[in-house]
């Protein structure tokens, strides 16, 4: 398709605009650390820049390649960004459509209009995949938390009494039991 070719040509500008969009979710002053000339590198910035690139490359290939693992990792990152609502966390995948149209507006032709729905639906499919992974990650997060609770550590957080009150209660209960046991 002609549109895929165009995407390949415009890859760097689209990617850069896309990354900007993703990083706009961070506190403004953090953005400069996540990207910038030397790509101030760290697991977070690295995860995003590499992840977006992988997705984009898959998108512009003749056959939509399998990028489940990449999306999963990105969604794991999104899922622990507490400041994001789920809609915000996923928005960047849908936003790619707008970014592509914007970045390609000069080169746009009626011929591309015909190919657009196919590409848009590819993006939608990726986004839906993202939705699955986002939900799975949030669920996993709560599972992890539940496992912590189950393994006994909840004693620390969930009982609301001070130890001496507990001691007193225990003693009372025992006394009660003894009294009950007596004829």
């Amino acid at each position: 398709m002609r549109i895929l070719q165009l995407l390949a040509e415009k890859e760097s500008t689209i990617l850069s605009a896309w990354l900007d969009y993703v990083f706009s979710d961070f506190k403004p002053e953090a953005v400069r650390f996540l990207r910038g000339k030397d790509r101030f590198a760290n697991p977070l910035g690295q995860g995003y820049s590499q992840g977006l690139q992988d997705i984009f490359v898959a998108l512009r290939s003749e056959e939509l390649a399998e990028v489940g693992a990449v999306i999963e990792y990105l969604m794991k990152l999104r899922a622990v960004q507490v400041e994001l609502a789920p809609s915000q966390a996923l928005a960047f995948l849908f936003e790619l459509k707008k970014i592509i149209r914007q970045e390609c507006r000069k080169e746009w032709s009626p011929e591309l209009d015909q190919e657009w729905p196919e590409l848009a639906s590819r993006i939608d499919r990726l986004a839906l995949q993202g939705f699955d992974h986002y939900m799975a990650s949030r669920e996993l997060l709560y599972q992890v938390r539940i496992r912590e609770l189950k393994s006994g550590r909840h004693i620390l957080t969930d009982h609301v009494k001070c130890p001496s009150a507990l001691v007193r209660e225990d003693l009372n209960r025992q006394k009660q039991a003894e009294n009950d046991g007596q004829p």
Binding site: R39, A41, N42, P43, G45, Q46, S49, Q50
Partner: peptide, 11 residues
Amino acid sequence: TRAEIHEGPKL
């Protein structure tokens, strides 16, 4: 040291 990203991707 400085955190760097290499092809792979590898941190």
